[in-house]
Write a protein that binds this DNA or RNA. Structure first.
Lengths: 263, 263
DNA sequence: ATTCCGATTTGATTCAGATCAAAATTCCTT
DNA sequence: AAGGAATTTTGATCTGAATCAAATCGGAAT
């Protein structure tokens, strides 16, 4: 899902880790995957917000009209202000949601990870752009079809509603970061956010690859590239993180990092 | 309420807009208000997100268990981290949604106006506090009851979902303001936001009362009181606004103000 | 009216982060 | 493996907003 640190405690509710209460229970007499398309069975997003709420027949129809697509890093999936004619699921990779101003200043307003859903029911055009931050794989389906399924499927509506509320919380958490935290705290917040998404079993030590360049991190934190770089260096010199090849980060002690976020 | 003039116009807009498709059509043979509690008929929030979706019988039951309450400016309605046992509708006034850090730094993450709904379905406790910014009047009802109505009423679910998405958009717009705009642009953004909520018929000239103190404006914009004050003075000297009694603002030319927001 | 107290403005100074300008690294292509 | 472009780091300087410190204003109580 989107932002908010601390994800660990309730991460389970959402992503594939959520599949527990639905699929993992093998003691069932009939295979729950009967009639489910083969592509879906192995799909990252099978238990996601959208597909996790669909019946076998719906899944079959949706999959008939879906196309899996690879998206290069930096490639746009939905453009700001554009009319939206399709939705997608993220199968793999990280997608950033951006807002840009006419003069070019831009702000990343959310990050989405597999198996998140990208789309905005009820509104014809997108108020932001969605762009692959890493090489990504998405499953695209026509808007009208899913809108119809939304209309027919209470559980799907519920899931989308819950996702919207979760994103709202994440956005508001990030508002606090943008408005009231120092550069140091901002960078620590971002690292903490990524760490908790990349490596959900937060043992005391963690390692992960940054899905964002320094420029993108700056756009997420409302800082400049130089400030981000300096703060990363500072964290490195303080021993809070190790940096390998610019993108790979090791956090020897997550508690230390969390402390720097100041809640 | 500090905001008399604003309140009136605001009230007007919402009700006739909302009632248009439901109530105003007189050519109906039976009175659509039959069976609707008297308090509801004259209620600000009658056509709001919640009550606008309820049938007469539901409205009757809800109103039986609701209490109208006056809340002084600055008084808390919901506390951050507290378990939520009731929801409310704002009948009058402005409510601010805040997040505070352990060390006292705080950020306003949203403003709600009558007849908005305050509450957070699906989640037991609130991640933010809601506090009256102006003297306010709210209609409080027990959580369990509304949760049941939510379960029973598709239109209500839809309205709440749509409101969540609207708030999400607003939050993301504000993220751009917090992260990428200058102090001048931030203050202009806030004035523009209030102006467009207070005086929806945006003719070229507008006047309104600020529902927030300088300190609250600072907490909304991620600035200090002094910076807010200086920027207001600057806007005044530039002739973009006139300030009367600190709280009352006149904007001679809304286009000029909008220009300063830089989109 | 007068007094008082909190809110707001104004002024002087400081400082975190921006900007400008190279150097150093990484990584991509050949 | 070498070359070259892009990304990142580092350094020097500047500046917008924060901080510190008074004045002034405005509104409530007397």
């Amino acid at each position: 899902m989107t932002l908010e640190p601390k994800r660990n405690s309730n991460a389970g509710t959402w992503s594939h880790r959520a599949s527990g209460h639905r699929n993992v229970d093998i003691a069932r007499s009939e295979d729950p995957d009967i009639g489910i398309p083969a592509t879906c069975r192995i799909c990252e997003a099978r238990q996601g917000v959208v597909c996790g709420a669909l019946a076998a027949a719906q899944l079959r129809e949706l999959s008939r009209h879906s196309t899996r697509r690879k998206v290069d890093a930096g490639r746009e999936i939905v453009a700001q202000g554009e009319e939206v004619t399709s939705y997608s699921n993220i199968m793999d990779g990280v997608v950033k949601l951006c807002k840009v101003m006419p003069d070019g200043r831009q702000q990343i307003v959310g990050l989405q990870f597999a198996p998140d859903f990208i789309g905005r029911p009820f509104v014809p055009e997108s108020t932001l752009s969605a762009e692959a931050a890493t090489p990504a794989e998405i499953c695209v389906f026509p808007r009208g079809l899913l809108d119809r399924m939304i209309a027919d499927t209470p559980e799907l509506r519920h899931n989308l509603h819950a996702q919207a509320l979760k994103e709202l919380d994440a956005a508001r958490d990030w508002m606090l970061t943008l408005g009231r935290r120092t550069a140091q705290e901002k960078v620590a917040s971002l690292l903490y956010l990524i760490a908790t998404h990349a490596e959900p079993e937060t043992t005391s030590s963690t390692a992960f690859d940054l899905p964002l360049s320094r420029a993108e991190i700056a756009d997420f934190l409302g800082l400049t590239i130089e400030t981000v770089s300096r703060q990363m260096t500072k964290l490195r010199k303080q021993g809070v993180i190790r940096i390998e090849n610019n993108r790979h980060i090791v956090v020897p002690d997550m508690d230390e990092l969390e402390r720097l976020v100041s809640a």
